[in-house]
Write a protein that binds this DNA or RNA. Structure first.
Lengths: 190, 190
DNA sequence: CTAAGTGTTATGACCAAGTGCTAATCTGAA
DNA sequence: TTCAGATTAGCACTTGGTCATAACACTTAG
C-alpha cells in the first residue's frame, strides 16, 4: 500500500484543485492505484467527474467575465450624469480593493472612480486627464460605500481645458477629493 | 427552409460565444433543424464539440485566475527597490487598459503603477497616500512599456510625511509625473 | 484457526455526447 | 426533368464516465 487511503484522498482534493483536467486514468497513474479505487475515492469525497468539474470551472469563468466588464470597465457604478455639469457614482469597496496588511483601500481605486467619473461627465470623444491634485482625507475600508460627486467648473467649459472637481464621501464624511484638469478635443455638441 | 445555411452558421457562432454550454441537441432545437445538420455546421465552421468547448473555456479561466493574482495585486512589475531611496517598475500596456474609443490608456492605470511604486519604496506597514499631484504629459497606448522611477525626497524622511516623486517614461519620453505625499506610521526599521 | 471487516481490483452493462462514414431524401433552379 | 447542394437518417465506434456485483488481500477479533 503506497499511501494510506485517507492521505491519498486528501492529496486527491488538492491535486484536482490545482488541475481539474485530470481523468480518473490520469489520477490512477498518479497514485499507482486502479481506476476503480480512484472512482471510490471520488465517490467518498463527493468529487464529481471530469466533465462536471470542467462545467463548473467554465461557468465560474462566464460569471467572472460578465462581472469584469462591469467592474473593470466602469470602476464604480455611475448613478446619474448631467453632461458638462455634474455626475455621481458609487463604489462598494470589497476585500479585493484593500491592502492585506492593514485593510485600507488602495489609493488607485479611489482615484479610478473619481477619474472615470470626471471622464464620464464630459461627454467628449476624447476627454483626457492632463493634471490632477488629490487629497486622501481619510482611510477607506472594505464594506464602505464610496459616493463620488463630480462638478464641472462652468467658467472653464469654453476652453479645451476644463476643470472637474470630485469629492468622495463615505456616510457623508469626505474621504477623498480631487481636482482634475481635463483636455477635450471636440467642441460641445448636442 | 427556416434560415439559409450561411445565416444560420453566423448565428451559431454568436450563440455559442454567448453560451458554450449547449449540446448539439439543444442547438438543433433552437434552429429547428436536425442534429446532423448542426454537426455539419460545426464541422464547416470548425467549432469543436461541447466537451472541447468547455475544456477551452475552463483553461482560459485557469490562466486568468493565475494572471489576476499577479496583475491586480502588484500593478506593474517592480524591478528594483532601494528602500527609502528609489525604486523602479515596468508596466506593459495592453488593450485591456485603454479606452475603446481612442486607444489611449486610462489615467488610473498610470496612477496605479506610480502609486503602488510609491508605497513599495517606503517599506512601512502603513504607508498611505495623503496628497498627490499628477501630470499626464503624453497619451500612452497599447503596446507601450511604461517605466516608472520613484525617488524619495530625503529631506522629508525624518517626518511621518514623506514625499515621493515618480516619473514614468515610454522609450525615454516622460508620459507621466506625480508627486506623492505619503504618511508613514512605523519608524524606520532595519 | 476461522470469520468478519476493510480496502482494493476486476468485470460487465449502460449512458451522454459526441465522431466518421454511407446512404437516402428534399428542394430549387437551369 | 435533371442535378447539385442541403438536409436527414442510420450504424459503428470513442471517451470518460456510472452502477452493481463479485472476487481477492490483509488485518484483526473471537
Amino acid at each position: 500500500m503506497k499511501t494510506p487511503k485517507k492521505e491519498r484522498q486528501r492529496l486527491l482534493i488538492n491535486l484536482l484543485e490545482e488541475d481539474p483536467f485530470l481523468t480518473d486514468e490520469d489520477i490512477a497513474a498518479h497514485f499507482s492505484v486502479s481506476v476503480q479505487t480512484v472512482r471510490l475515492d471520488r465517490l467518498e469525497c463527493r468529487i464529481p467527474e471530469l466533465r462536471e468539474r470542467l462545467k463548473s470551472v467554465a461557468s465560474q469563468h462566464m460569471q467572472k467575465t460578465v462581472k469584469s466588464l462591469q467592474t473593470e470597465e466602469i470602476f464604480g457604478e455611475i448613478i446619474e450624469v448631467e453632461l458638462d455639469d455634474k455626475a455621481l457614482s458609487i463604489f462598494d469597496v470589497t476585500s479585493d480593493h484593500v491592502f492585506m496588511r492593514n485593510g485600507i483601500a488602495r489609493g488607485h481605486h479611489l482615484f479610478a472612480q473619481a477619474n472615470s467619473l470626471a471622464v464620464a461627465v464630459l461627454d467628449d470623444d476624447l476627454a483626457l486627464t492632463v493634471r490632477s491634485t488629490l487629497h486622501f482625507e481619510k482611510p477607506v475600508r472594505a464594506g464602505d460605500r464610496v459616493v463620488a460627486r463630480a462638478v464641472v467648473r462652468q467658467e472653464t467649459l469654453k476652453n479645451k481645458s476644463t476643470v472637474v472637481d470630485v469629492i468622495s464621501k463615505v456616510e457623508n464624511v469626505t474621504v477623498f477629493s480631487g481636482e482634475f484638469l481635463m483636455y477635450r478635443t471636440t467642441k460641445k455638441g448636442r
